[in-house]
């Protein structure tokens, strides 16, 4: 009898809690700002060349990178030259060069990065990270709105043993995203931006990479994005060049 009672209580709790979670999620999105747009990063903190953060590596991190470079050389082949996506966090750190289109939905934010056509799916429906999901370059992302702030947690990343932004499979990335206006920015825009912004709105992405195995402390980078015209984002048909080269090698 008590067994059936316990099962009944569990089902009752599920019936009550599940809609409650969905209601909370829906309530949170009602006040959420609209971040759907094509965005181009035009400023960063720290400014300049992102990725030169090796000094924050722990001795184990330094050893990891050194081992890779001793094995493959300091000027080893780069993934970008072979159209291999670098994933997180690099996909969010393309200063000036490659835009990201964001499509916002109450239960999902989808980020379409032009560079290597990487896609980030950020689930806002209350789910947790799965326990049986493979590690990928962009990882698995869940998020929620806290007022005007979108909080994203990303894990299940593929390890990366060399510059830029080495990380282990246990790395975790938190992003805090909110909108502001250009006059409230406290950092200088990159002088290299050429696209004109569509308006004064600025999307601020504070990214915190936590990977205690190889960094002495969490690494924080803040990116500032401006809206650009949606005809500025293209297909990034990178691998076709590799295929054409391969076809040439097979020319009869």
């Amino acid at each position: 009898m008590s067994k059936y009672l316990s099962i009944s209580v569990i089902f009752l709790l599920m019936a009550v809690i599940s809609p409650a979670i969905q209601w909370v999620a829906a309530e949170n999105t009602q006040s959420a700002p609209d971040i759907s747009a094509v965005w181009m990063a035009f400023a960063s903190n720290p400014p300049g060349r992102l990725g030169a953060e090796q000094s924050r590596l722990s001795p184990a991190g330094e050893a990891l990178v050194a081992r890779f470079e001793e094995t493959y050389g300091r000027e080893h082949p780069d993934p970008g030259a072979f159209c291999v996506p670098q994933g997180m966090p690099s996909v969010m750190l393309a200063l000036v060069t490659y835009p990201i289109e964001i499509i916002q939905h109450p239960k999902r934010v989808t980020m379409l990065a032009e560079m290597e056509m990487q896609v980030r799916r950020i689930y806002l429906d209350g789910r947790d990270h799965p326990g049986d999901y493979p590690n990928t370059r962009v990882g698995h992302s869940i998020g929620h709105w806290e007022g005007d702030m979108l909080i994203i947690d990303t894990t299940l990343l593929t390890g990366w043993e060399t510059r830029n932004w080495p990380h282990t499979e246990n790395a975790r990335i938190q992003e805090r995203i909110h909108l502001t206006t250009r006059d409230k920015m406290k950092v200088q825009p990159s002088p290299f931006i050429t696209q004109k912004p569509l308006d004064d709105q600025v999307m601020v992405v504070e990214l915190i990479l936590t990977d205690p195995e190889i960094y002495v402390e969490p690494v924080t980078i803040t990116m500032y994005y401006q809206k650009i015209s949606d005809d500025n984002i293209l297909e990034y048909d990178c691998p076709v060049g590799l295929l054409l080269d391969a076809l040439e090698e097979h020319r009869q």
Partner: peptide, 22 residues
Amino acid sequence: SVILCGLLLSPAVFAHHSAALY
């Protein structure tokens, strides 16, 4: 110059190209 080097100094260029080569 700023315009000339707009992309030369950007992180994505360094992500694809060896700074030792050029």
